[in-house]
Design a protein around this nucleic acid. Structure first.
Lengths: 232, 232
DNA sequence: AAGATAGATATTTTCGAAAATCAATAATAA
DNA sequence: TTATTATTGATTTTCGAAAATATCTATCTT
């Protein structure tokens, strides 16, 4: 038995690793919407060759986080009001569907996990003293929403949900305005978890739709993306 | 003006072209479920180099038509009863959602197109004299279902629908049994188009779900995949 | 004989260079 | 001047070879 214990970094191919980093940088808004992605620059900044870069970008293009124009190269997917509205629509449908299915199939252990994650979420303030989103809160926030659908057993539904969440996270992080909206996350999340634990699918459905809508409303009301951010 | 009139084959990159061919061969069942995809063989049969092949396979992997095991290579996605059931579930949700939205937004021109495609579909028998699915019928069948959702304006919904349709087509074509089931397609399709044109979303919803379920029932009842086809 | 170890082979993954395509500029003609 | 055509430079796309990893077979040990 001579396994080097997977200190990460290896076992993974370069393509998988650069895919993760690129996706992270796009979702974090580090790579701006619409920005051209030249291979010379990417080779420089990510320290890998053409092959893994092209494959990673091809994969991201399939998820629509980047777009490929043939013979012209890759760009970070632009953002627009119409795209954000489409994203909202799909998220409302997919997320409520996943929650409904989780409520149908979830067992006691699943319920307990929901209780545990909402508790952990409540123990942490969403903003740091500097007024920015707290990374630890963000992790717990994601863990909470993931726990709601953890009992959903459809691989395809969970895959689509994951992809849509990535897109939504990007919009939220690009909206600097979002963190200063004074939104009362906790009451929304508590209502949601209560409905889920009470196995009230219709109420949970209604609450998650409102929750997602509220996020988009805040993003659209902000000044920052209003000016030059959107493509439409 | 010196455009060579796009005789196809060019303008498209090699990667895009080999992607189309690979996807077609997988959906047609030419490349068997679970089959290993070795680069030496693929280079031989498709006549292209490594780079476009890897990119095409990466894209197909993102759509789950092939799977990538790191350092072990690509394989055609296996088929299984559980996957087929998951596919059915998602198709029922996505397809009915798309139809509902099309009914909400479609105009007279959209209605006319539905009438035109159901008419064209009815003029053609689904089976050839040899007892196989007629390719021309298959084109019209797809055109009919596409026309139902043509007025759906959500890019994401249509993208997911397209991907799910590819997967479903593969299962159907792998089921040799399917063509000898003596299914009465036309009455199902007519009922569906009637409901859509009457703008009865609930009825259309019910009919499309039944339509998709029936397809899976036929596939699962067949002997051919029963024996060694499925992974579970 | 069963299991582990090491070497050889097959295959994937990655890099660097060549070919093809696009974009921008300069030169030419109406 | 305006539009069209070459020419140059930048960039993507593709190929072929090298490096890394896995798989198979034979050998050795218990």
């Amino acid at each position: 038995m001579t396994m080097p214990l997977r200190s990460d970094g290896d076992g993974k191919t370069l393509m998988a690793s650069v895919y993760d980093r690129l996706r992270g940088d796009i979702v974090d808004g580090e790579l701006r919407p619409g920005a051209r992605l030249r291979f010379d620059e990417l080779k420089e900044s990510y320290g890998v060759g053409l092959s893994p870069l092209r494959e990673a970008l091809t994969r991201l293009a399939a998820e629509k986080l980047v777009i490929l124009e043939e013979h012209k190269g890759f760009r970070v997917a632009p953002i627009s009001r119409s795209d954000l509205n489409d994203l909202l629509f799909m998220r409302q449908e997919i997320e409520s569907l996943a929650i409904r299915r989780a409520i149908e199939r979830g067992d006691d252990q699943w319920e307990s996990a929901v209780v545990a994650t909402i508790h952990a979420l409540g123990k942490r303030d969403s903003l740091t003293e500097g007024g920015h989103i707290d990374p630890e809160w963000e992790r717990r926030h994601r863990a909470f929403h993931d726990s709601l659908v953890a009992a959903c057993d459809s691989p395809r539904l969970l895959l689509y949900r994951q992809q849509l969440t990535d897109h939504a996270d990007r919009y939220r992080k690009l909206s600097h305005h979002y963190s200063s909206s004074g939104r009362d996350h906790l009451s929304e999340h508590c209502a949601l978890s209560d409905a889920v634990i009470a196995r009230d699918a219709d109420l949970a459905n209604q609450l998650i739709r409102k929750h997602l809508l509220r996020t988009v409303e805040i993003i659209l009301s902000g000044e920052d993306l209003q000016k030059t951010g959107f493509d439409d």
